[in-house]
Computed example of a mutant assay.
Amino acid sequence: MTLKSRIEDRLSDAFSPERLEVVNESHQHAGHGPGFSGEGETHMRVRIVASAFAGMSRVARHRAVNALLADEFEAGLHALAIEAAAPGEPTRW
């Protein structure tokens, strides 16, 4: 199972999102560090709309997602961009 798939499964199980998109952006970071080619699954973006985020601040939403994915960081995920919204809130995607 890929990291992207594990993230999708965990977010789906925890938040039952109306919309969910997990994007591997690792290739955009090629050359940012010695020997980093941009291959693999080290930099991900999560775009999620879920009623669980209603009434939560942006910081609280990010903390909830990061806490849920803590094991993935320990397994090699380096960076996670989070775009979390509640239903009815505007999104850029």
Rank of each mutant, 00 (worst) to 15 (best):
L77N: 05
F15M: 06
P17T: 11
P90L: 01
A86R: 04
A70E: 15
A54W: 01
A81T: 15
A75Q: 14
A60C: 08
H62S: 14
T91S: 13
S37R: 13
R6T: 14
H32R: 09
A60R: 13
T91E: 05
A14T: 06
A67Y: 02
V49R: 01
G35P: 09
E39Q: 11
R63E: 13
P87R: 11
A67W: 07
N24P: 11
S51W: 04
R92L: 04
V23S: 14
E25K: 01
H32I: 02
M44W: 03
P34N: 12
T42A: 14
A30V: 09
A81I: 00
I7F: 03
G40L: 13
W93R: 09
G88P: 10
A84D: 04
S37G: 02
R92C: 00
L20T: 06
A70P: 06
F53V: 04
F53S: 08
V65Q: 11
T91A: 02
H32N: 13
H78L: 13
F36Q: 07
A64H: 06
P87F: 07
I7M: 12
R61Y: 12
L11S: 02
H78Y: 02
A52T: 10
L80K: 09
A84Y: 01
P90R: 14
E8C: 07
A50N: 14
A64K: 11
R92T: 09
G76E: 01
A54Y: 02
R10I: 01
A54V: 06
L69C: 11
A85Y: 11
F73D: 03
G38P: 06
L20Y: 03
F73G: 08
A60W: 07
A60F: 09
F15D: 08
T91F: 00
D13I: 10
A70H: 12
I48E: 13
A70Q: 12
A85G: 02
S57A: 10
G35N: 08
M44I: 15
F36S: 12
S16I: 00
L68H: 10
F15W: 07
L11Y: 04
G31A: 11
A84E: 04
E41F: 08
I82H: 04
Q28T: 01
R19K: 08
G55P: 02
Q28S: 01
A81C: 03
R19M: 10
R47C: 10
T91I: 13
G40M: 06
N24W: 06
R19S: 12
G35L: 05
P90G: 04
E25W: 08
G76P: 05
T2D: 14
H78S: 08
G76Y: 03
A81F: 05
Q28Y: 06
L68N: 09
A54P: 00
F15C: 03
P34C: 02
M44Q: 10
S26N: 08
N24C: 03
R61A: 07
